[in-house]
Design a protein around this nucleic acid. Structure first.
Lengths: 259, 259
DNA sequence: TAAATAGTGTCTCTGAGACATTATATT
DNA sequence: AATATAATGTCTCAGAGACACTATTTA
């Protein structure tokens, strides 16, 4: 640090990449955008962009999240000064809650063929995000089942090292379901215990024992809070409704079958 | 990414900062260096430095780790091409194993008053690291008890946001002791179960029940492996000796008392 | 002999796994 | 009526907490 010389030290570009996850059609899906220019033109990539001089990586991530998910950017921008990172809980307005957390920084010298780019990757989780909105560069955007991206023979190859990022992000999400109450982020409130159970089933790819799952969730103080009313429309009896509680960590953790 | 223009996009400097932890004199200690120039001249800071154009943040971290801990840099440099990141296990030579993992990236626009610096922080753990060696800029270096840095009234104020980094790093280390076998990284092999127990006691700041601790460690397949010989010098009977096993994750996790 | 440490044994209680049962809604 | 889901109950077993006890070494 002492001997920094701007003339000699080559500049790095710093970007953020976002793994934005949601559950749709009974599958864990991640938002991808189609690249409109080289390199990897026509390939799909995680949404992201450059970090501006005046903002932190976290602020850039929030901005990109807003652009890509259709949450009005101006609204978000006005709020930026009072964005609350309450244990990774980004309150965009009083209704929508989006979980956003830093994942890892990717910095291989050759990860971008054009230049030296260091990218800070984030994981975002939300229930029922609106359909993707084309960014200002009019890129195509769509949700893609994570399973299809990480299969032995992936349906598509992602640009840059984004396949690795998706893999790391999925592992982060899976393990966070074990020892935090993060699963409540994947369901719209109010939700039933079956809704919550389905999150675990889909993300883990294995079915926790439903009855034991109910017992566990209800035994953890502050995991969920019952609200008035009952579920509609299912075959079977009406289910009690819940919202997320205040507890963030689970101790002892939710148990996963094998590994 | 599409619309990058080097003329317009301001350069970022990218650095690595290292939280290098070891246990000395019954305390968890972290390596600090005294800053030889502004800003924060005379303050203590985490070791670190700029990422070179040809290297990743991980490679830069290994290089800095070598410089600051006195592991011969040339040796390490020759090995760099074949550095093995085997689940975060950096094998420097066939004897020394140093655990190195990425912690988090710090990117507040004003974290360095001179310029825009994004820093990728790492956590390193090792047993019995040699005494610090002055870097090429002849800075002072010393081990410092973590407890003194994070007290209500800290003994010293760290430069930049390094106090926050130390806090985050400590939390990472503490939680990793819960669900991984990382504690074996803090003791020199061969070690006794009491040695291992002492790691938990020191890092967590609370004493796990010794007898139950023994039972737990021995019940986890691959946590430790017994080796020939017995401990010397303690009051009391000679203790069996162990080395680290191959298992990395613990399931179910080690239990911590309260929080 | 006292004190500290190593190691084993055992009782209790919590919680996970597994399974059974009843009730309530839709088709 | 058949079926799916909601909710509760219960038996078993693994494992954590706590404590007792023996053995071995040094001061």
């Amino acid at each position: 640090m002492e001997n920094y010389n701007p003339k000699e030290y080559p500049p790095f570009a710093v970007t953020v990449d976002l793994g934005i996850f949601t559950i749709r059609d009974g599958q864990l899906q991640v938002l991808l955008v189609e690249r409109g220019g080289p390199p990897f033109e026509g390939s799909w990539a995680l949404p992201g962009g450059f970090v501006n001089p005046s903002e932190s990586a976290e602020e850039a991530a929030v901005r990109e999240l807003a652009e890509e998910t259709g949450i009005n950017f101006n609204v978000l921008n006005n709020i930026r000064a009072r964005i609350i990172f309450d244990k990774d809980q980004v309150k965009v307005d009083d209704k929508k809650k989006v979980h956003l957390e830093q994942l890892k920084t990717y910095s291989s010298p050759d990860r971008d063929p054009r230049m030296r780019v260091v990218s800070v990757a984030f994981v975002a989780l939300a229930a029922e995000l609106p359909d993707p909105v084309a960014g200002d560069d009019a890129r195509n955007a769509r949700w893609w089942p994570v399973e299809d991206l990480l299969a032995e023979v992936p349906e598509i190859e992602l640009a840059f090292d984004h396949s690795e990022i998706v893999k790391d992000a999925l592992e982060r999400v899976r393990s966070k379901l074990e020892y935090t109450t993060l699963a409540t982020q994947f369901v719209k409130e109010p939700f039933t215990l079956s809704d919550l159970w389905r999150v675990y089933k889909i993300v883990w790819g294995e079915e926790p024992h439903l009855q034991n799952f109910r017992r566990k969730v209800l035994s953890i103080d502050g995991f969920v809070e019952q609200v008035d009313g009952f579920s509609e429309g299912n075959t079977g009896p009406k289910a009690k409704l819940y919202k997320a509680g205040n507890t963030k960590e689970i101790q002892p953790a939710m148990m996963r079958m094998k590994r």
